[in-house]
């Protein structure tokens, strides 16, 4: 039983970083290809398309910070807490990155046709980012309640 708890603890420790990375990969890939597509149809604004497509990369950074905050000797006492916080924060970061990528792709597509709405079109992606920040901040706050091993 103890060994199983330890495995869960290690999973929880690495989950925010791994799941955040998976989300960022998927989000950036969708938004990035949308940016490439938009470049085929426009003569300017390439830089901002690529800039917007990089937005979902922040989740992996949040994941790394949560991982370091959770990092402590893994024991049977702390493992359940590490698992719960790590996996849930990781899932939140992963899904936020995936959906943010889709928001960014839509923003790129919309601003390609109407450059004047560029700022507003990025707002939904920024709102999704806000939820990722919630998951990140509260993972940090609550992880302080887990004993240091």
């Amino acid at each position: 039983m103890n060994e199983f708890l330890l495995v869960l603890g290690w999973v929880g420790l690495y989950a925010p970083m791994a799941l955040g990375a998976v989300g960022s990969i998927m989000g950036c890939a969708v938004a990035g290809q949308a940016a490439i597509g938009a470049m085929l149809d426009t003569d300017s604004g390439y830089g901002r398309y690529v800039g917007v497509s990089a937005m979902p990369s922040s989740q992996v950074i949040y994941g790394i910070v949560v991982m370091f905050t959770l990092n402590r000797p893994v024991t049977a006492e702390v493992a359940p807490g590490l698992f719960a916080i790590g996996v849930l924060a990781g899932l939140a970061l992963m899904f936020s990155a995936i959906y943010q990528g889709q928001c960014c792709a839509s923003a790129i597509q919309a601003s390609k046709a109407k450059p004047e709405i560029f700022g507003l079109s990025v707002a939904p992606a920024a709102i999704v980012e806000g939820f990722a920040v919630f998951a990140f901040i509260f993972a940090l706050v609550i992880s302080s309640n887990i004993p240091q091993g």
Binding site: A31, G32, Q33, A34, G37, A105, I108, Q109
Partner: peptide
Amino acid sequence: QTDYAMLMASLPP
């Protein structure tokens, strides 16, 4: 999914 994103973004609305 990424291929469709690229294709759709390359088409004028």
